[in-house]
Simulated scan of single mutants.
Amino acid sequence: MLKPLSELIAEARQHCHSIDASEALQQLASTPTPLLIDVREPGEVEKHRVKGAINIPRGVLEMKMIAMCHDPSQPILIYCATGGRATLSAVALQGMGYRNVMVIQGDCESISCALNEGL
């Protein structure tokens, strides 16, 4: 039987650490500074861009991540438009060996507003 995307995301959420935008701001103010990764497609990023975020679309994340970060303990914050791609991305990064991955929950507009005001 095929699993719908909603079920895949629900299962993935059980294996990743989620935080809200206020917790993300606290993380971004800490040392070491986390990588902030937007896994949306480039065309989506223009509408709600977060200062300091690196855009690595979900489809190429595993191919580009090791070039971006060699430290498996580096804090990584991930977000997308609704949380689904970010959740799947977090599980993929954990599978690659990254140990400190967090998904910023919420919709992209509220995340970008909260982070941009706080940064």
Rank of each mutant, 00 (worst) to 15 (best):
L93H: 04
I37D: 01
M65N: 02
E109P: 00
A29R: 12
A92P: 00
A90G: 04
I76Q: 02
H15D: 12
S110Y: 07
A86Q: 02
T87G: 04
E7P: 01
G118P: 00
M63Y: 14
A21S: 15
A81E: 11
A81V: 11
L119Y: 12
Q26W: 07
H17P: 00
H48W: 15
H15M: 11
E41P: 07
Q14K: 15
I78P: 00
C80Y: 10
A90H: 04
R99H: 14
S22G: 01
I37K: 01
L119C: 04
M68R: 15
C113A: 08
P4N: 13
Q27P: 00
C69Y: 00
E11L: 09
L61G: 05
K3N: 15
L36Y: 03
M96H: 05
C108A: 13
C108D: 00
S6Y: 12
P42L: 12
S18Q: 11
C16R: 02
I56H: 04
L88Y: 01
E11D: 13
Q26R: 14
N116C: 04
M102K: 12
L5G: 01
H48D: 15
P32A: 07
R85N: 02
E11K: 14
Q27C: 05
L88G: 00
D38C: 09
A92W: 01
K3G: 11
S30H: 07
I19L: 13
K51A: 07
I111W: 09
E23C: 08
P57F: 06
P57D: 07
E11M: 10
Y98Q: 11
P72S: 13
C113W: 01
I66N: 06
A24N: 09
L88I: 11
P57Y: 08
E41N: 10
M102C: 10
P57E: 08
L93M: 13
A86F: 02
V91A: 09
V91I: 06
M1Y: 12
I37A: 03
